[in-house]
Simulated scan of single mutants.
Amino acid sequence: MIATILHRTAADCAEELPGAPPKHPSGTEREVFTARGKVFTLMTEVPRRPVVILKAEFGEARPLRDQYSHITPGYHMHKHWITLEGGDGVDKELVDELVTDSYRLVVAHLPEAGRPVDPHTYGRRTRAAR
C-alpha cells in the first residue's frame, strides 16, 4: 500500500467502528479516532511521512515489528503502541485488523456500562486465519 492511501484506509475502517468519531485536536496536523474519549488511532505526517499510530496488545507489539518492516515502535508513544507506514506487505486487510485490534484494546479498558461493543468478541480474527 502506498503511503498516501494509508490514512484513508485507516480512517475508513475507524469510521465504521461503533462510537468512534474522528477528531482534529490540533488543526490539520493529525486526525484522531477515539472510543468514548480514549484514543485508539492517530494519523499524522509529523514525522515527515504519513503514519498511523495504534495501540497493540502487550505481547504483540514486538512480534508485529519483527514480522513487518513497516511497523515500528509508536512514534512518541508508550511501548504498547506501534507506528504503521505504507509499503510492501501493508494491505487493506492488515490495516483493518490493526485498527480494529487497537479499538478493541481501548474499549476493553472502558467501564463495562460505557462500552459500545463487547471487546472480547467484536471483530476478532487471528493472523493465522489470514
Rank of each mutant, 00 (worst) to 15 (best):
V99H: 04
P111G: 06
S26H: 11
T72N: 10
V32R: 04
L98E: 09
E97S: 15
G74T: 08
T83V: 07
R36T: 11
P63G: 15
H120P: 04
K38S: 12
V90Q: 06
A129V: 11
G87P: 14
E93M: 13
R104T: 07
D118T: 04
S69R: 11
D101K: 05
H109G: 14
S102L: 02
M43R: 05
G86A: 08
L17K: 01
P50Y: 03
V39M: 14
P25Y: 02
R65W: 04
L105W: 00
D118M: 01
V52L: 06
T100H: 03
H76E: 11
A56C: 03
V32K: 07
V32S: 12
L110A: 10
G37H: 03
R130P: 07
K92V: 15
P22N: 04
A61C: 08
A128F: 03
P18R: 05
T72V: 14
R30P: 05
D96G: 11
V99S: 09
L6Y: 05
G89V: 09
D91Q: 05
E29W: 01
S69I: 04
V39N: 10
A20Q: 05
E112N: 13
K55I: 10
R49T: 15
C13W: 01
T121E: 06
Y68E: 09
R124C: 10
E45G: 12
P116L: 08
G89L: 01
G59E: 11
R127L: 11
E97K: 02
K79R: 14
V90P: 13
T9E: 02
T100E: 05
T72G: 10
M43D: 10
L64V: 04
P50T: 08
D88V: 13
G123V: 08
T9Y: 00
V52S: 12
V39I: 13
A128W: 00
E16C: 11
L105S: 09
D91N: 13
K92A: 15
A10S: 02
K92P: 01
E112T: 14
H7D: 06
A20G: 11
S69Q: 12
L17H: 01
Y68S: 13
L42R: 01
P50S: 09
W81I: 10
H109N: 12
A20P: 10
D101S: 13
L94W: 02
D101A: 14
A11S: 13
G87L: 11
E97D: 13
R124S: 08
T9A: 06
Y68V: 13
T41I: 06
G123H: 05
